[in-house]
Design a protein around this nucleic acid. Structure first.
Lengths: 137, 137
DNA sequence: CTGCATCCGATCGGATACTG
DNA sequence: CAGTATCCGATCGGATGCAG
C-alpha cells in the first residue's frame, strides 16, 4: 500500500493549488519563459515568439504578472513608446519550475523537441562549466 | 545586457510549450497531485479533494491523462465498480514539477499556505531521513 | 453508493480592427 | 510600438440524470 507523502508542517491550503492560481493560466508560464530565459522582453516580440497568443490575452497576462509581483517594467521610453519587462525575485523563482518542464519535455517528447528525436537530460542540455569560469549568464 | 540561456542542443520545438500542451490544462496537475502525492486515487475521492472540479471535467482530464500515458488503472472491481488510478513512470516524472510548485507556494504565499504565515523551504517541509532508514514512501 | 453523460449559463480565450 | 475595443466561439462550472 502506498501512503501519502506528508509535509512536516500541515498545509492550511495546498501550495500547488495556490501557485497555480497565478501560474496556471494559459500562456503565463510561456511569457515567463520569454522574459526569464529567452530575454524576449517586449510586447510585440513576445507576441511573435508565441504564435496563437493574441494582444488582448498578452496584455491581460502581463498585467496579472505585474500585479502579482512576478514582473516589472524595467525600461520605459516614449516616441517611440518602448516598454521592456523583467523578472522580480519572485519571478526568478519560477525558473526552476520552467526547468522542470524543460527536463520533462526533453525526456518524454524527444521527437517533438529535438530534430534527432533523442531524449536528453537537463545535464546534457545545460552542462555545468566547472573549469576556469563557472559563469553561465 | 542579459543574454538568453541556450541549451547545448537546439530545440526544434520548445519543451516547455510541449509539456504544457498536456500538463497545462486546468486541474491536470492537481489530479496528478492527488494520485501521486496524496494517494487519492478514486473518482469521487478526487472530486472531494478538489472543490470546484466537476465530474464532467474530471472525467475529461482522467481520459486525457490515461491516453497520454501519465496514469493507468491499477485496480478494477465490479459490483460495486471501483477504479483506482496510479501513475506510470511518465506520470512519476511530473512529481518534481509539482515539488517545484510546492516550494514556490511555500515560499511566496506563506499566509495562504501555512496557519502561522511563515514561509518554509522544501528541506524544512520534507526533511531527509538519513539515519537508520532513508525510505520515505 | 460510484463512475460517468447531458444540458445549460457563465467565463475565458481567440480574431480582427483600431488608438495614443 | 504597446496596448484597447468589440465580437464571437470554445471551454468551464453547476445542476441534474442515469446505469451498474
Amino acid at each position: 500500500m502506498d501512503s501519502p507523502l506528508l509535509p512536516s508542517v500541515r498545509f492550511q491550503n495546498c501550495p500547488i493549488r495556490t501557485s497555480l492560481g497565478v501560474l496556471g493560466k494559459r500562456w503565463t508560464l510561456l511569457v515567463l519563459r520569454d522574459i526569464g530565459f529567452l530575454k524576449v522582453d517586449r510586447f510585440n516580440q513576445i507576441l511573435r515568439t508565441l504564435p496563437g497568443l493574441t494582444p488582448r490575452v498578452l496584455a491581460m497576462r502581463l498585467r496579472e504578472l505585474e500585479q502579482e509581483g512576478f514582473t516589472k517594467q524595467i525600461e520605459v521610453q516614449k516616441t517611440p513608446r518602448i516598454v521592456r519587462w523583467g523578472l522580480t525575485a519572485k519571478g526568478e523563482d519560477t525558473l526552476p519550475i520552467l526547468m522542470g518542464l524543460i527536463g520533462f519535455g526533453s525526456k518524454w517528447y524527444p521527437e517533438v523537441v529535438f530534430a534527432d528525436s533523442q531524449p536528453r537530460t537537463p545535464e546534457e542540455l545545460f552542462p555545468k562549466r566547472v573549469k576556469y569560469n563557472p559563469v553561465i549568464r
